[in-house]
Simulated scan of single mutants.
Amino acid sequence: MAQASIHASAVVDPSAQLGSGVEVGAFTVIGADVEIGDGTRVGPHCSIHGPTRIGRDNRVHGHAAIGGDPQDKKYGGERVALEIGDGNVIREFVTINRGTGGGGGTTRIGDDNWLLAYTHVAHDCQVGSHCVFSNNSTLAGHVEIGDWVIMGGFAGVHQFCRIGAHAFIGMGALVNGDVPPYLLVASDDYGRPRGINSEGLKRRGFDGDRIAAIKRAYRAVYVADGSLADARQKLAGMASDSADVRDFLDFIERGERPLAR
Rank of each mutant, 00 (worst) to 15 (best):
G99A: 09
L139K: 07
D86F: 01
F168E: 09
T95F: 05
D111T: 02
G128M: 02
H142V: 00
V157P: 02
I90H: 04
G62E: 13
L139G: 05
G67R: 06
G103E: 08
G152L: 00
W114Y: 15
H166P: 01
V157W: 06
Y75T: 06
K74H: 12
D112K: 07
F160I: 01
R98F: 02
T106R: 15
A122K: 04
I90E: 09
F133A: 08
G101Y: 02
H123V: 08
S129R: 03
I84E: 09
I90Q: 07
G76C: 07
E144R: 15
I145G: 03
G102L: 12
H158R: 12
F154P: 00
G76R: 14
A122M: 10
M171H: 13
A64L: 07
V157M: 11
T95R: 02
H166Q: 11
N88W: 06
I84Y: 09
C125Q: 08
R162I: 10
Q71N: 08
I150Q: 13
R91L: 10
V149T: 05
N113T: 09
N97I: 05
N97V: 06
G152F: 00
W148M: 12
G128R: 01
R98T: 04
G76V: 03
M151P: 01
D72F: 05
R91N: 09
F160Q: 08
H158N: 14
T106F: 11
V94A: 07
V143K: 09
N176C: 14
A65G: 14
V175M: 08
G103S: 11
C161S: 11
T138G: 07
K74D: 13
A81D: 10
R162N: 11
I84L: 08
D69W: 05
N88T: 08
E92T: 04
V80I: 12
D147Q: 03
R79K: 13
I84A: 06
G68P: 01
G103P: 00
R91H: 07
G103L: 09
I66R: 00
G87F: 00
F160M: 12
T107N: 08
D72Y: 04
V127I: 15
G102Q: 14
G76K: 13
